[in-house]
Design a protein around this nucleic acid. Sequence first.
DNA 1: CTGAAAGCGCTTACAG
DNA 2: CTGAAAGCGCTTACAG
Lengths: 327, 327
Amino acid sequence: MKPKIEDVAKLAGVSPTTVSRVLNNRGYISQKTKDNVQKAMNELNYFPNDLARSLFNKRTYLIGLILPTTSNPFFGELTFHIENICASLGYKVLLCNSLNRIDKEEQYAEMLMRNQVDGIIVGTHNQGTFHYHKQNLPIVAIDRYFSNTIPVVGSDNYAGGKLATEHLLSKGCKKIIHFNAPLQIEAPGQLRRTAFEDVLKKHHMEPVTYEIETPLGHEGQKEVIQKAFGEIPDVDGVFASNDLIAAVVINEAKKRGIDIPNRLKVVGYDGTETGKIMMPQLTTIQQPIDLIAKTAIEILRKEIDGEFGTAPYETQLPVTLLEGKTT
Amino acid sequence: MKPKIEDVAKLAGVSPTTVSRVLNNRGYISQKTKDNVQKAMNELNYFPNDLARSLFNKRTYLIGLILPTTSNPFFGELTFHIENICASLGYKVLLCNSLNRIDKEEQYAEMLMRNQVDGIIVGTHNQGTFHYHKQNLPIVAIDRYFSNTIPVVGSDNYAGGKLATEHLLSKGCKKIIHFNAPLQIEAPGQLRRTAFEDVLKKHHMEPVTYEIETPLGHEGQKEVIQKAFGEIPDVDGVFASNDLIAAVVINEAKKRGIDIPNRLKVVGYDGTETGKIMMPQLTTIQQPIDLIAKTAIEILRKEIDGEFGTAPYETQLPVTLLEGKTT
DNA sequence: CTGAAAGCGCTTACAG
DNA sequence: CTGAAAGCGCTTACAG
């Protein structure tokens, strides 16, 4: 059996109250009993039961993290940073891969509530889920709008879309197409598309966007891309809404013997560490993943600590153009 | 305030005991009171507090997952599969990114114990950490040897190393070098190296292995690779112990104007989804990540359910050669 | 400086 | 079929 506070107390010849006090370094305790208790704890290899503590304190130091999937390098890296920062602050992360499925999201939301998490970070697609679940549980969204009471953190998607599109134009592209997630998803990511359209219109060019499902449904993605190449044979520029899509585009172009960057220029989005290593040649818009993680947690902590209204409703972090050899 | 069982009981006009019974579907209860209680729960938007439940049941359905970092696509995908399977079985995942740092691992191990996890899955480097922490807490290791009481799950590393090396030989390589993690790390992954050496020796060739740190310390990795190119200018084959290293090798070769696959052939290791999309041309040894996850959880569950001795000490899952255009 | 008592929100024998 | 009581392992007023 695991030792409990009572066992330590007995061994040290004190009351459980006293053990608890040295555990929490609270109230006055003589150095002598302190030492005694410490010795007893070591001897028994005692570790406090955080469940019992949390039950009493109504504070678990547990954070729920809901994302589409850590298989995607963007989310894998985001998860790393979030967990890492949380750990440094004494928080623990309960991981949830929702695959953007609303049924899973709902299950996860309930699970997190039952586990009394102190707060939730959501980076998943579907909105609405949290409207009713949220019984003033601190939440912060990453790159997703849920409601106007839930703060959103993300990178400056409009600037990113603009940067990408203008870059393609500056490189001489005349026929640019964009691949993005379906419109019904109300993510700030759609601003990339808006920026793309705005810039092209300003240059009197017709913006064409193909919608593509984002979870790694590789096959479906390929089809859309093939269709695009078929319908717009004179395409000479592609702005992909993430690096994986850019990779598929590049590969498809290679198969068709289309030279990159001479006949076709491609800009991706995300600029993950993995992407930079695996595709060092890719021109892409880099998101500050670590900063997104840091900011989201800062805002969540403020909410948890009851500092409402302090956090900005929306935070847009700066993006960078990483110029490679695909443009 | 969150409603508790007592509130539901009052509203439904029954005792807490009865509410608990309908919650757990336990013992005899009339359909009528069952309905009453259900109605009261809905009305109050009641969710049971799993902390309190777990405290009593001594079962949290929490699994600790310790890995180097989800930033690495192999671990990002492994994490996804593990969490996904856990969720389908009613388990929740507490994520820990140790970065292979022994101090972090120790902290995480203690944290997991305090949180009363039902079991731990470790895919991290350092051994020894769990020798004393482990007070018969169910543990399963992924590709790491800890002690002979902790089951290990991984892919067939020897077969993988053999497959990779023989493939390079069959493609006519005469001077093959291998990049792997430092030897002191006692991971089954070292079997890839052993296989490499065995095969080359059998063919009367001298095996050369360069040691490379695995966490994404990109810069350090690059240096080792540059050094290798400098020292062995006639290298015509590389077996890299993961796809990220393979990517750096390929990039370095390109910079030096070394044509792949004509002058240099490269085989990677892992074959992640991300890798397959970002580097579709790479020849690599694919690990069955989903199977590794599934097997690890199966074994852990057996341990949790007290079926000791049932689980094999070591499980080696089959690997596949994915032939691309780099060989 | 230290301890006995009550309580965090739940569950399960034990009665009835 | 239903309820009162005790307890999971901890903590915190309240006394002393």
